[in-house]
Design a protein around this nucleic acid. Structure first.
Length: 191
DNA sequence: AAGCTGGCCTACT
DNA sequence: CAGTAGGCCAGCT
């Protein structure tokens, strides 16, 4: 590896918990997470959520503890994994490894991060905080959330308090919310 | 580069 | 309740 390859190197670690696989991609040079997988039934599927963006990845067990922490977040535990671990810098060029493509997306992710554990907010609420009526664009940005669980996009629901969509399917979204203690009846959040 | 396409919202049936 | 037309706007092509 030459110097440029080295600073952009992404290591992929995977942890298995209850038949679900959780992968993370991390740049050793910075120690920051560049991408987190949704829980998957197959190890390959979890890893591909990272590796498809980083063809030069290397598999490593170096960061399994972080993948494990993410699995605990999925189970509804509070952890100390925070935003400082994430590479939220806005991508500036074709060879930039940052998964955050625009300032709009970055701002949506930052607002979403503020939603407390066990609570929900609406897409509209986030849009209004960003002083825009681009409600759908907020959803689209969260649909591309590179850091599920840590950036809790599962806590963002529709204005009528129905669940709304999720990159991993709305039933997974409901599952995560239930694990956090949110009460849900059918497809709707209860106050 | 002018149209698409969407993790949405409101208003109405 | 359910379904949907028409509005909105960021990002992609």
């Amino acid at each position: 590896l030459n110097y440029i390859d080295n600073i952009n190197e992404v290591m992929v670690s995977t942890y298995k918990s209850n038949k679900l696989y959780f992968s993370v991609g991390i740049t050793p040079a910075t120690g920051k997470i560049v991408r987190i997988s949704l829980p998957k039934q197959e190890k390959k599927a979890a890893m591909e959520e990272i590796t498809k963006y980083y063809p030069n990845f290397e598999v490593s067990d170096q960061y399994v503890d972080i993948a494990k922490t993410i699995s605990r977040m999925y189970q509804g535990k509070k952890t100390d994994l925070n935003i400082d671990m994430l590479n939220l810098r806005v991508n500036e060029s074709y060879d930039d490894i940052s998964p955050v493509k625009t300032y709009f997306m970055r701002n949506v992710l930052l607002e979403t991060y503020e939603i407390p554990f066990g609570e929900v907010r609406t897409y509209k609420f986030l849009a209004e905080k960003l002083k825009t009526r681009a409600y759908r664009a907020v959803g689209t940005a969260l649909g591309n959330n590179p850091f599920p669980m840590v950036i809790p996009c599962h806590r963002v629901v529709k204005s009528d308090l129905t669940i709304g969509q999720y990159a991993g399917g709305s039933s997974l979204k409901k599952e995560i919310l239930k694990n956090e203690g949110v009460s849900i009846k059918g497809n709707k959040i209860l106050k």
